[in-house]
C-alpha cells in the first residue's frame, strides 16, 4: 500500500493545501472559519481539533467502506464523526480548558462541519486507508493554514495583537471592524480572490470532473468520472 503510486500520494497530501483547499476553493466549512478567526489562538485550536477529527474519521470510514451499506452511509458517517468530535471535545475540556472556553459552541459544531462529511463522502468512501489518511492530513493542514492566515490578518489589523501579544505599530492603528462579522467576510472574500488568482487555470485541469464542486457530495455521482 505504501510503495506504489508515490507521486500521486504526495499530490493527495498537497492537494488540500492550495489546489483543493477546503475553505478557499471548495468553500466548505465557512461557518467555523468566519467564527473562530477573530484570534490566532482559537483559530489554531479549531484547525487542529477539526484536523484530528477529519483524519480519524477518514481512516475509520475508509476501513468500513466495504461494510457500510450504501443506503445508510450518511447516518453511519455522522455517527462516526459525532463520536470522534465528542471524544475530542472531552479531551479539550479536560486538558485545554482555555481553548475549550474560547471555542465555545463551535467545538461540538465540528460534527456538522461539511469539510469532514464532504471528505468522507467524496474521498474516504472510495479510497484506501492510506490515501484517506493522507487526504485527511492534507485537508486538515489546508484548513488549519487557512484559519491561521485569516486570523493573523484579522487579529493583527483588527486588534493589533498576534496570539494575544501586542504588535508594535498595529496596536496603535486598529481596524476594529475586522474583528466583527463583516470583517470576517471581507478577509474571506479577499483570500478566495487571491487563491483563485494563484491557481487560475491549474485547478480546472488538476481537479477531476465534478470533484471540484462543493455540491459533489450530495449529487452522488462523484468518483465515477475520476
Amino acid at each position: 500500500m505504501k510503495a506504489n503510486n508515490a507521486p500521486s500520494k504526495l499530490s493527495i497530501l498537497t492537494n488540500g493545501i492550495i489546489k483543493e483547499n477546503p475553505v478557499l476553493v471548495l468553500v466548505l466549512g465557512t461557518c467555523p472559519t468566519l467564527a473562530t478567526t477573530t484570534s490566532v489562538s482559537t483559530a489554531i485550536g479549531m484547525g487542529i481539533a477539526a484536523a484530528i477529527v477529519l483524519i480519524c474519521s477518514n481512516i475509520l470510514i475508509s476501513l468500513l467502506r466495504k461494510i457500510i451499506p450504501d443506503s445508510v452511509r450518511i447516518p453511519c458517517y455522522i455517527v462516526v464523526i459525532a463520536g470522534f468530535v465528542s471524544v475530542v471535545q472531552m479531551l479539550v475540556q479536560a486538558y485545554f480548558q482555555d481553548l475549550y472556553n474560547a471555542l465555545g459552541v463551535y467545538l461540538p459544531l465540528i460534527v456538522v462541519n461539511c469539510i469532514i462529511l464532504g471528505r468522507a463522502e467524496m474521498f474516504a468512501s472510495k479510497h484506501t486507508v492510506g490515501e484517506s489518511a493522507l487526504d485527511g492530513i492534507g485537508m486538515g493542514i489546508g484548513f488549519t493554514l487557512t484559519l491561521l492566515v485569516m486570523s493573523t490578518i484579522r487579529e493583527v489589523l483588527g486588534s493589533g495583537t498576534f496570539a494575544g501579544i501586542s504588535v508594535p505599530f498595529f496596536s496603535s492603528y486598529n481596524i476594529p471592524i475586522l474583528t466583527q462579522t463583516p470583517g470576517g467576510f471581507f478577509v474571506f472574500g479577499c483570500l478566495i480572490a487571491l487563491v483563485a488568482r494563484i491557481t487560475h487555470g491549474k485547478v480546472k485541469h488538476a481537479a477531476t470532473g465534478c470533484g471540484n464542486c462543493p455540491n459533489a457530495a450530495v449529487c452522488g455521482k462523484i468518483g465515477k468520472e475520476a
Binding site: 445508510v72 453511519c76 455517527v79 462516526v80 459525532a82 463520536g83 465528542s86 471524544v87 472531552m90 479531551l91
Partner: peptide
Amino acid sequence: LAPIVVLTCIGLVITAALAVTN
C-alpha cells in the same frame, strides 16, 4: 437487515468509545 445491523454495530462501538473517554 444489513443497514440496520451495520448502523447498530457502529452506534454501539462509538458509544463504548465515548463511555471509555468519559
